[in-house]
Design a binder for these strands. Structure first.
Lengths: 209, 209, 209, 209
DNA sequence: TATGAATGAGATTTCATTCAT
DNA sequence: AATGAATGAAATCTCATTCAT
């Protein structure tokens, strides 16, 4: 019984999140209204305020959730691939997978890249956010363990990579500007390789890979 | 005196642009209203609509104008400096100057980086936009001439650099995340150097420098 | 009590309709504002938009409703009168009653005749409009049954009468132009008599009257 | 020289009248603005106020002018036709011609019938209005002379005919409701014949026709 | 929990009119 | 006579938020 109520609650919340994503990507955030979202979700206006404090709240939870899903998929692909190579190659593998996902789902790219900042990314990392699909903290510790790179250095590297990739892929995938993504990939990958290898000791290797 | 009317018009338009910048940076774009802007500018509400179609219009014109000013200053500093070095060093010089400007004026950074995309950047390049302070087209041709790099290649390089710098400096300067800008600069500069040199023939040098 | 909410809604809508009529007839349609209407109705501005899409919407609903009331009253008078005579006399009786109503309430005449067209009249006939006080469809079928005139013929006759009466009574009642209504009535009635009798078989009589 | 200035003035005024007609018929009176009119006319806003006091003023002058043109044409056709018959037939001839003109130019019908009232019609009759193309006064005296009907009687007859025709032809020509104009004409004409003949002595004939 | 009618501040936008040139 | 930039009151319409049910 309680479970049914629980799942019913989850259902409404999910309906709101899905509707919000639909509206945000179609109309743009500033032109989206809570009225639109609840109408599409098929719930009453008041219900919105039971789960979210305002438009910004639902957006942030949505970004973390969507980014998490993308990231989780890429990680799963990486883990199930017969993989050998250093940290740089591992990151490139993951980035490549993410770029492909975005290429398939441009609305998603548009939404995430317009709203994902390093701040939200780090916020998601804390693991406090229940809406995120991944525990970034775990992933971080995992990376530290297998690369033997100190936390701060690792954070800088990831920061540079994340910012570089997200900002360049945006206009390339969505508008083929200045060139289509397939043409841009070599530049992106070689730069990632440089960023990673130039900032880690030469001997760094993925332990256990 | 037809000139008097013209100068009066320019004055009104400038007052609106300046006020809009003030309001946008203090209140944030979505919380800024046209009412606020005209009040601060000291003009009537209807006057706003003589010069701009809506809030988005004035924002875009403002971004191009402000970005142009920053860029122009950096270029002037570069040109008046006793400079020797390759293209990479030239770009690094300019980027360094821009980062310093942003560090001094964080509101400006916040405003520009939230709204400047490669699209707007390229839009500004066409020179069609009368609100821009620089003719990027000229600059582009100038670069081509002195570097002997073909247009497309040059565009990709600039794209990578612009996106990389603008996305990384944002959280570093404004929030010191993941590290303060001075600590991040070495990473940024080495990456720029890599991007430029890895994508140009080794012999590329700034002619006449 | 769901009924309480329903009756509350009806109350608000009625308040808006009544206020709109008041404002429209006093100020004229184009000088009436939604602000004025809601102020008089004692509801919030937003409430207006819960029930009507704009000024035109409330006007059309108002015309149908008011015209329906006038018509209904005339019909009731006709039905409760000890009446003998043909179709022409029946219509004249009804028209006479309507003219008297308008003569008593010139604001109503002004409002209706400026906005009532055969289109709206026919629209009201469909019965789709819930704001109309009469089911014109029923009335139409009723007329057909008792007069044995085919639908199309009946429609033309009514059209001619309605247009003739509404257009002539307007300036006569409101401005006594070219002559006061009492002086004009003989002309109107004899013309109605001609229109009806000239376009129906001589034997047409109201069955059951 | 003075003539040139005079004609220049007339040119501007005409441009304004023509543009106003264009805008009124396309956008509807209430949605037409003086801005739109002057833009289409290619004159400055201030110029409008040199010739007209406001939107209503230009509309009324326009109605009188347009109605006058239509009427004048019908009269000319009547005068140049080899005509025999009574007053009723003469009026029917003129009405028929007007209906044909309206059928050819529905925007004109829409504009005139929405704005022509007996008041404006009579106002036009005074001949004071320089924008009217006809001197209705003359026409009226002419009619009196040849029909020997007293002024008041004549006015009532014309009033009934004008209102009857204008209100019925509107929805018939524009919307074919309740039937197309060609199908409605017999009803209109027979009613006109009735109105005229029933209200004049039997011997009334057009003298000199 | 869930609803959705009601709110009303406030945002955007229009436009007749003026007046210095 | 002609212009058109400027005005600013006033209109329309939106929408986050509340609260009685």
């Amino acid at each position: 019984m309680a479970g049914k109520i629980e799942s019913n609650k989850k259902q409404k919340k999910d309906a709101l999140l899905n509707s919000a994503f639909e509206i945000f990507t179609n109309e743009g955030f500033s032109k989206s209204s809570i009225s639109d979202i609840v109408k599409l979700a098929g719930v009453a206006k008041g219900t919105f305020y039971l789960y979210f404090t305002d438009k910004y709240d639902i957006r942030n939870k949505l970004v973390a959730r969507k980014a998490g899903i993308v990231f989780k998929r890429a990680l799963e692909a990486y883990e199930s691939a017969p993989f050998t190579g250093g940290l740089a190659d591992a990151i490139i593998f993951i980035v490549d997978n993410i770029l492909d996902q975005f290429n398939e789902n441009k609305a998603l790219l548009n939404f995430i890249s317009k709203n994902l900042s390093w701040g939200i990314f780090k916020g998601a990392i804390t693991g406090a956010n229940a809406d995120s699909e991944v525990d970034f903290d775990e992933f971080f510790e995992y990376l530290q363990k297998i690369t033997c790179i100190e936390r701060k250095q690792l954070e800088i590297i990831l920061f540079l990579v994340v910012e570089f990739v997200s900002s360049t892929c945006y206009s390339s995938i969505l508008y083929s500007e200045p060139v289509p993504i397939e043409e841009l990939k070599p530049y992106i990958f070689s730069t990632i390789k440089f960023i990673v290898e130039n900032n880690t000791s030469e001997s760094t290797e993925l332990i256990g890979s």
